[in-house]
């Protein structure tokens, strides 16, 4: 099972712009009209990591091999904790994470 980063061919440190660029290039080479399966895979990979929010969500809920400490490390990298997140932002982050896109409910996502 390839990770979204592998599908898009970007590093885990890639910026939003780099991820978008990689996505667009892949879409250009794999239009939805040609191979829908392939396009859907690219699209899902992009949606999983397209911005900070989704990358955080992906890091928190799609890497079961990580320990809790590692998860926290993923969520709040040490080098950025120097200026701690304001409480309001943290709450906003939590509510956005706890949205319907998460597998909390009796929901099964098929590809």
């Amino acid at each position: 099972m390839k990770s979204p980063y592998q599908i898009l061919g970007v590093s885990e440190q890639a910026s939003d712009a780099e991820i978008k660029q990689a996505y667009l290039q892949l879409v250009k080479d794999n239009p939805p009209d040609r191979d829908q399966q392939r396009f859907r895979q690219i699209q899902q990979a992009y949606e999983a990591i397209k911005d900070g929010d989704s990358r955080l969500r992906y890091a928190l809920f799609h890497l079961p091999s990580l320990t809790f400490d590692e998860l926290l490390e993923h969520a709040f990298p040490q080098n950025r904790v120097a200026h701690a997140m304001p409480a309001e932002d943290f709450l906003k982050l939590l509510t956005s994470v706890a949205s319907d896109k998460l597998p909390f409910k009796t929901q099964v996502k098929a590809s």
């Binding site: 939805p32 396009f39 859907r40 929901q107 099964v108 996502k109 098929a110 590809s111």
Partner: peptide
């Protein structure tokens, strides 16, 4: 599009 989603 195209999009496919399932729910249980």
């Amino acid at each position: 599009l195209p999009v496919r989603k399932s729910e249980a």
